[in-house]
Design a protein around this nucleic acid. Structure first.
Length: 863
RNA sequence: GGGCGCAUAGCUCAGCGGUAGAGCGCUGCCCUUACAAGGCAGAUGUCGGCGGUUCGAACCCGUCUGCGCCCACCA
């Protein structure tokens, strides 16, 4: 169906509108982005690419609707709206989904199997197959499975988005793992490398032992974990020096003790050595301001590494490295003969039973030994403490020394802070979230991950005669050859048979973190490398909509990349949406199991009703999930259908019809105010206030105006009056339909199609000027007094428990002269609508409009 | 410990210097020729506490309390 327009139905219905109009929009390319040739005519949106690792939930529906309302408004204002959709199919979430979905795991040591058939998805298996162990597959097979599943998932997502009515141009989608994403990520990386903005370093970094990868500071979250203080005695001559620790298993990693320089208890020890229990290792006692006399016993172990404070002390005091926790979270072998120990044999004996054990087990074993040894003093003191976790992980992070790639951020802190001032934040207080984070940046952005499904770093290393890589001078490809995979592609000047051979080369095994790619979403979406003409017209972008919890990750890193690559902010506006809370006011999230899936909501209430609910959540404000609000939205949509049908079924006004009646003019004055208010609100991304004003007008239009002018519009009075009512009804309806179109795109399209030849979503946004001369300066008061008077009549009838059709013998209207004058202007409509026989006017010196209603006696004698 | 936000009718929230608002829910009435998955009407509040500024404060300032989020510390 590509022809627009449909007949006025007998009984309008909301059912089936989504199917009808979404296919029309698609076939007619209603939302296609056409290049205008100039940046000024464009409104471009950096849509958040949803993670394709499961299903969309109602929170997505919520925030994406907000953006769509803005997009539709801007389009109607005449902007060429660049509104692409990305799919974030890169990285760990996808890996995890593929593992669970197919029951596979990646083993990089396996060779590629070209004839590999994907296993039956776990969810479709029956009987004992359900519990079959995971199948090991090669890295390339694994990556192919990731690509296959994300492609399927993306189709499901797109279908839902279309049903919700997002006005995305579906020909402008991008992914974060596809060829173009790889090319853009690698090219941006190489340019940073050339400018010295990215570097690699061997350093202690936070490490997830389950995923066995380094993680970035921004991805770290605190969780409260139960633990206990262990009081452990070190020996100093004949005396004990007691420390308290929640991590006794790090005792063999202890390289020093530290106390505050002013702490008199420990001042005699500074510069001396103490001896650790069980292991007999001599460690120095040092003084540092950061040591807190109030915590524990006031003197602490410095271990390699318990936390980032340890790292700081280790660096400042140039302490040795005694690594005990390995990358898999298990204890590594340690050779005590190489350490300054009093009794290497005993130390080795104690320690060897811990090797290969998890941190948890090692702790229990070591505590037993300490107790037996008598160096565990007193009882354990239970405590809860915040422990750092990878936000997607479920085991505490360890700090592991490893070689990683970093993008410089610390050096640019001031500049990045200033970039924040160039962005308009909605709501404004969200800027402080950004500023606080930037001010606190104290380590560079760690972008490498020791994983499989990600964008590879496009570098190789030459190997010397001993087979050792020269990391100082990485071999890089020409930008034109990107993307490359150094694990299968050969660097320039080498042949494949030199791979991993002395005097040959090796590929960089790491991949980039997801954020290293998604931080380039503006570059990806706007065709940075592939389409310079497009890029010039849409970048920097107008709007970044996103949730406030990823300001420190996505928003921050995007600003970093734009700053370093283009010397600009990526967008002019950032609109931060809130979360969806369940009825208990908890954040709705998958892990909590309180997620409501949007599919059935759309079926039950209709897309417009769901959108209406979404529009009730202000920018940046967490909003409760509320089906009741969807019912109201549905009622509004029904009202639009019915009111439209009614107005359009009245006799059409003639070509010379004009708004002449005072009530009609007052209505247009009211509408002019509504248009002004809604336009200003939407320009400031305040779709909630806009909708509030529009809705208020629309209900006034239906409940009061429509009822008041009904009789006149039927043609029961003079011709001029009837024509004025008919033309005003149509004009107001036409305008209010366009005002509602961004929120209720399906319903508005349906009613619009009854009288127009082209989609409402490309129609011009209403202006005050089109309401005719004088509407902008017109007085809405006559409409307000008419509404107040008719309300008084209704109230009287309601109180008397009679039908609204009951006759009124007399109205007595008391008000100051100016108000009475307005009432006189609308008296004929008032009398017709209220079935009033006579109106009496009594002038008062001041005070409000007061209306007395005298009901007519009924023929049967009852009042 | 620092920062940000929030506290208004039973619920969800708007109002942000001039007589307390909306919707839902609740109660009552009405099958009124657009609409019964409707319509009309009604009741409901020391606007978190305490001070201050002001002719006047839900609104501005200070302070306290409670809730949420972010950051830091986490021996």
């Amino acid at each position: 169906m590509t022809r627009y327009g449909s007949p006025l139905p007998e009984k309008p219905s909301l059912d089936g509108l989504e199917a009808k109009w979404s296919s029309f929009w698609s076939e007619a390319e209603v939302y296609r982005f056409d290049r205008p040739g100039s940046r000024d005519a464009v409104f471009s949106i950096d849509t958040p690419p949803p993670t394709v690792s499961g299903s969309l939930h109602v929170g997505h529906v919520f925030s994406y609707t907000h953006t769509d309302i803005v997009a539709r408004f801007q389009r109607m204002r005449g902007k060429h709206v660049f509104y692409p959709m990305g799919w974030d199919d890169n990285g760990l979430p996808t890996e995890r989904r593929v593992q669970n979905y197919y029951g596979v795991r990646c083993d990089p040591s396996l060779p590629y199997d070209a004839d590999f058939t994907p296993p039956t998805p776990v969810s479709e298996r029956t009987g004992k197959d359900k519990k079959a162990p995971a199948v090991s597959i090669s890295r390339q097979n694994f990556v192919e499975l990731c690509e296959r599943l994300t492609t399927e998932d993306e189709l499901v997502f797109e279908e839902l988005w279309r049903k919700l009515g997002l006005s995305v141009d579906w020909s402008t989608t991008y992914t974060t793992i596809g060829k173009e994403a790889q090319r853009v990520s690698q090219a941006a990386f190489l340019r940073l490398l050339a400018h010295g903005e990215v570097y690699q370093a061997e350093a202690p970094t936070m490490w997830d032992v389950s995923f066995q990868t380094a993680v970035a500071n921004a991805e770290v979250v605190d969780k409260e974990v139960a633990g206990a203080y262990h009081r452990i005695a070190f020996q100093h001559g004949a005396e004990d020096v007691c420390i308290e620790t929640t991590r006794p298993e790090l005792l063999p990693a202890c390289v020093a003790l530290v106390a505050h320089p002013d702490d008199e208890r420990y001042q005699p020890l500074f510069g001396q050595e103490v001896v650790s229990p069980l292991f007999g290792v001599r460690v120095p006692v040092v003084a540092h301001e950061a040591a807190d006399p109030e915590k524990g016993s006031g003197i602490a172990m410095i271990c390699t590494f318990g936390d980032m404070t340890d790292v700081m002390w280790w660096r400042e005091f140039r302490l040795p490295s005694r690594t005990v926790v390995g990358r898999n979270g298990r204890l590594l072998p340690v050779d005590f003969a190489a350490l300054p120990t009093e009794d290497a044999a005993r130390a080795q004996g104690v320690y060897d039973q811990l090797v290969g054990k998890t941190v948890h087990t090692a702790r229990e074993l070591l505590v037993e030994e300490l107790r037996r040894d008598g160096s565990l003093i007193g009882e354990l003191r239970p405590t809860t403490r915040a422990v750092k976790f990878f936000e997607k992980g479920d085991k505490p992070l360890e700090i592991v020394s490893s070689r990683q790639w970093f993008i410089k951020t610390v050096d640019h802190r001031e500049a990045l802070l200033a970039r924040g001032d160039e962005i308009a934040w909605h709501p404004p207080h969200m800027q402080s979230r950004y500023s606080d984070w930037v001010k606190g940046v104290n380590i560079d952005w760690l972008v490498s991950r020791q994983r499989f499904f990600g964008v590879p770093f496009p570098v190789w290393y030459a190997l010397d005669e001993a087979g050792e890589p020269d990391r100082g001078e990485p071999i890089v490809p020409e930008e034109s050859t990107l993307p490359v995979d150094p694990s299968s592609d050969c660097p320039p000047g080498y042949t494949e048979d030199q791979r991993n051979k002395p005097n040959g080369f090796m590929g960089e095994p790491d991949v980039m973190d997801t954020w290293a790619t998604s931080s380039l979403s503006p570059q990806l979406a706007c065709g940075w490398l592939s389409d310079p003409e497009l890029f010039a017209q849409v970048y920097p972008m107008d709007l970044r909509p996103q949730a406030h919890d990823i300001i420190r990750t996505w928003l921050f890193t995007t600003v970093v990349r734009s700053h370093l690559e283009a010397g600009t902010t990526p967008w002019r506006h950032a609109a931060l949406s809130g979360w969806i809370l369940d009825p208990d006011r908890k954040k709705m999230s998958k892990s909590q199991g309180n997620v409501v899936t949007p599919g059935h909501l759309l079926d039950e209430y209709g897309a417009d009703a769901v959108r209406y609910w979404a529009a009730s959540g202000r920018p940046g404000t967490d909003t409760a999930f509320d089906p009741q609000q969807m019912k109201i939205g549905r009622r509004l949509a029904m009202k639009l259908l019915n009111a439209s049908r009614f107005v359009l079924s009245l006799p059409a006004p003639g070509p010379d019809a004009a708004t002449t009646d005072p009530l009609d003019r007052a209505l247009l004055a009211k509408l002019a105010q509504t248009v002004e208010g809604a336009t200003a609100a939407l320009e400031g991304f305040d779709y909630t206030s806009a909708l509030d004003g529009i809705e208020r007008f629309f209900w006034f239009f239906c409940d009061n105006y429509l009822e008041l002018v009904k009789e006149r519009a039927y043609g029961k009075g003079d011709v001029a009056g009837a024509e004025s009512a008919r033309v005003t009804l149509r004009r107001a309806l036409d305008v209010v339909t366009r005002l509602l179109a961004p929120v209720l795109p399906y319903t508005a399209e349906e009613t619009w199609s009854w009288t127009h030849d082209a989609t409402v979503h490309r129609a011009a946004w209403p202006t005050v000027a089109e309401l005719g001369p004088g509407a902008g300066e017109g007085r809405p008061e006559p409409a307000d007094v008419a509404a107040a008077a008719i309300a008084a009549v209704r109230k009287a009838k309601s109180t008397a428990k009679v039908s609204m059709r009951a006759e009124v013998a007399r109205l007595v209207v008391r008000a100051p002269d100016a108000v009475l004058a307005d009432v006189r202007l609308v008296s004929e409509d008032l009398m017709a609508a209220g079935k009033v026989a006579e109106v009496e006017y009594r002038a008062e010196a001041d005070g409000e409009l007061a209306v007395e209603v005298e009901l007519a006696e009924r023929p049967d004698g009852e009042a």
